[in-house]
């Protein structure tokens, strides 16, 4: 396999460097050659989702330049990946280069399951975990089935972390309701956003979760911000951090 370009979204780089590091270690632990293009910044999603495609376009063009040469591009963030995969072609026009990149950009879980074909995970995570699957992971990248669609259930992330020794994945009342982050929605619609987040936290607490795990730090940042403000003891963890010390094999 060729080189993997590590795509660390801007806010992960700045606020959750440990998640980036865990992602790097998981990938290198599989014997993959991984490189982090240092000039990367932001994929342009915040601008695009706010309706500022003019501002998003140059950032998307930079991203394509920086990552075009890699065999695969992997990020610990379903949301940013969905920007590249689904929206770059409409934002930049579907050139071959953009389409190729879109087709080879993956969120960590789907890369591990679909491309590396990891089937075994040996490790430990002895906690009651509430799995927060982000909307873009579910309904854009189809990393798991959505509760709305009536096709056979599947969940690539769960497939990986459920193998960790001692883990107990709790069942939520609303398995895949949005946490209310939604990018600039979190600020534009601050009141509804916070209510959505608090409801999500309450569901996890009711289900007995000791920790909320996810694959999108943006959702987790929002939930963590609410939990800490309200004094709810519910730490967050990224899937990459759960897998960091595990042995993954095909």
């Amino acid at each position: 396999m060729g080189k993997v370009g590590l795509f660390i979204p801007c806010y992960v780089d700045q606020f959750f460097p440990r998640v980036g590091l865990a992602t790097l270690r998981v990938l290198r632990g599989l014997g993959l050659e991984v490189e982090y293009p240092r000039d990367q910044t932001c994929c342009g999603q915040p601008m695009y989702n706010t309706g500022c495609s003019r501002e998003a376009r140059p950032l998307a063009e930079r991203f394509v330049r920086l990552f075009a040469g890699y065999e695969a591009v992997v990020a610990p963030s379903a949301s940013c990946v969905s920007m590249v995969k689904l929206h770059y072609p409409e934002l930049l026009g579907g050139t071959d280069e953009v389409r190729r990149l879109a087709g080879r950009t993956f969120d960590l879980s789907e890369y591990l399951v679909d491309v590396v074909k990891v089937t075994r995970v040996e490790g430990e995570y002895a906690k009651k975990v509430g799995l927060h699957r982000s909307c873009h992971g579910i309904r854009e990248l189809r990393e798991s089935s959505s509760s709305e669609r009536m096709d056979a259930p599947f969940d690539k992330t769960r497939q990986l972390v459920s193998q960790l020794r001692g883990i107990e994945l709790v069942e939520l009342d609303r398995p895949d309701e949005c946490c209310g982050f939604g990018g600039t929605f979190a600020v534009t619609e601050e009141a509804v956003s916070c209510m959505m987040g608090r409801d999500r936290i309450a569901d996890h607490v009711r289900a007995g979760a000791e920790v909320i795990a996810g694959y999108d730090m943006s959702c987790l940042m929002h939930l963590d911000g609410l939990a800490r403000r309200d004094g709810t003891k519910l730490p967050i963890v990224h899937v990459a951090e759960m897998l960091e010390k595990a042995r993954l094999s095909r």
């Binding site: 909307c135 309904r139 959505s146 949005c178 990018g183």
Partner: peptide, 9 residues
């Protein structure tokens, strides 16, 4: 158009 988290449900 902004009264949505774009969750896709």
């Amino acid at each position: 158009p902004f009264a949505s988290s774009l969750c896709g449900s």
